[in-house]
Nucleic acid binder design. Structure first.
Lengths: 268, 268
DNA sequence: CGATTCCTTGAGGCATCTCAAGGCAAGTGG
DNA sequence: CCACTTGCCTTGAGATGCCTCAAGGAATCG
């Protein structure tokens, strides 16, 4: 079953997306964010984060709102599946994974989140978080109480709109992942993952061709619907094809075009 | 890779969802909808539909807003991937599928939508629809212009909140589907699909144990990440196990408990 | 230094896909 | 009414891609 999904970069989307057009370029602008290292150690004043994810709409800064900043240590959970939903969380620095726990105790990774991305959107539906968020490295987040956000949004329609767009993006993002899980083989999945990380690094001012993975092979596999062994083998295969160099978690993409091509490999 | 995902019923969710609790019961109420056959042939006055999907919040009816009703014939597209986003669409009667088209022209089904469910939420993000919606049988929908909705929401915070919850549910729903696509084997996927349809039929006042599938084996397969042959074989297997009877598109579930068990089969 | 965690690699098994043939129901045109 | 087409489904046989199980290596940490 051939696949024609194509990676699309986007500001907030940790995942893939299928492009209706043949060139696969996204139709909305990719904002140029501030550098990921926070200048201020004071609580979040909103602007920086939301500039990233709400398409540059400067709604929060207008009100001079200040949200609680919080440090989260590597391995520590920011919130747990099933716990009461009170806030959205914007990643200020560091990387997170979202997981859902299966009944047998196994966990499935449903997403990775980098600076500027918002977590917790799935908690609105039921008032409890539908997934857990865990820091993959020491991180800082801004907690945005949903009650405050709602109240503020009532006075700022633009903000409300931005939040809706944010959620819509999340939906589109997950569509892309479904595509990946439903139609792609292992090489396509891993290539898609690497290219996605690459673009998100680039969007944050880092190198697109050389970066550190914060997640383990097992976490990547869980996210992609593969075993850790298959992820490892696929990395090795790409290395043998001279598409990239990989040393533990350090990745250097040598041939981005060819890696892109790994997508289309099966689209005859 | 065992799977512990569990089917959860919900008003608007055409898909699956993983429950944090061990009993797998959803923690939010399932609204009792009006009967699916519309009483009025006049344009949609909102209430009926939104009662279903917005958790009974009677926000639209308050304003006496009237949205355009539209018929869509079987096989006809309501909107196309890539076309400009103007409205959300609430299914009044009939069944729809959402699809994304891969670059090689093949289509992937990303969801099925029954009466009371809202389509088009993925269009907000970019201002263009990220998927196409096609009627699987003659259908009626209510078009809800997004501009109007936004305007109205500015005056009715409850509505805004309801829309956000709606989108959040969509996100949760897709999480569940990701789980299915990433972790479940063919039997589990097909069982999950059937149980989900069953519950949605029940929620609409139809029999939970006997119903007509509106979609083809190929569409089911596309949705579940399987080939149509595997779907067919799995139906046959379930029939041999006396879990159900299936004749073309007519399904009669004989042993709902055991079908539920097909989920947990691999969770030893 | 041992213990631990994470990763790599190999060998074999199996679930699903692929390819292929045929059946059934509904529609169409003579 | 029948012959034919068409769409959809079922079933079989073989191929294969990924998983499972297993062993061992390399970095990290106490």
């Amino acid at each position: 079953m051939p696949a024609g999904a194509r990676l699309a970069d986007s500001s907030c989307m940790p995942s893939l997306q299928v492009s209706p057009a043949s060139d696969g370029r996204p139709s909305w602008p990719v904002p140029q964010p501030d550098l990921p290292t926070p200048a201020a150690k004071t609580p979040c004043s909103g602007g920086h984060l939301w500039d990233l994810c709400l398409g540059g709409i400067d709604v929060l800064r207008l009100d001079g709102l200040v949200f609680a900043r919080r440090r989260v240590k590597e391995g520590q959970a920011l919130f747990h599946e099933g716990s009461a939903f009170h806030s959205l969380y914007a990643v200020h620095s560091g990387t997170f994974k979202s997981t859902v726990t299966l009944r047998d105790g196994r966990e499935q990774v449903s997403g990775f989140h980098m600076s500027g991305e918002v977590m917790g959107l799935d908690g609105l539906a039921q008032g409890t978080h539908a997934s857990s968020a865990t820091a993959l490295e020491d991180a800082e987040i801004c907690a945005i109480p949903y009650a405050q956000l709602t109240e503020l949004a009532a006075r700022k329609p633009l903000l409300q709109n931005a939040v809706c767009r944010l959620m819509s993006r999340e939906i589109v993002k997950e569509h892309g992942l479904m595509m990946l899980l439903g139609r792609m083989n292992a090489e396509e999945r891993v290539a898609a993952f690497l290219l996605n990380v690459s673009q998100r690094m680039k969007a944050r001012g880092y190198s697109a061709s050389e970066f550190h993975l914060r997640m383990s092979r097992a976490e990547i596999g869980s996210y992609l619907g593969l075993t850790l062994e298959t992820v490892s083998r696929t990395f090795s295969a790409f290395q043998n094809q001279r598409l990239l160099r990989i040393d533990r978690k350090h990745v250097r993409i040598l041939d981005l075009q060819a890696l892109q091509g790994a997508f289309d490999a099966r689209v005859q």
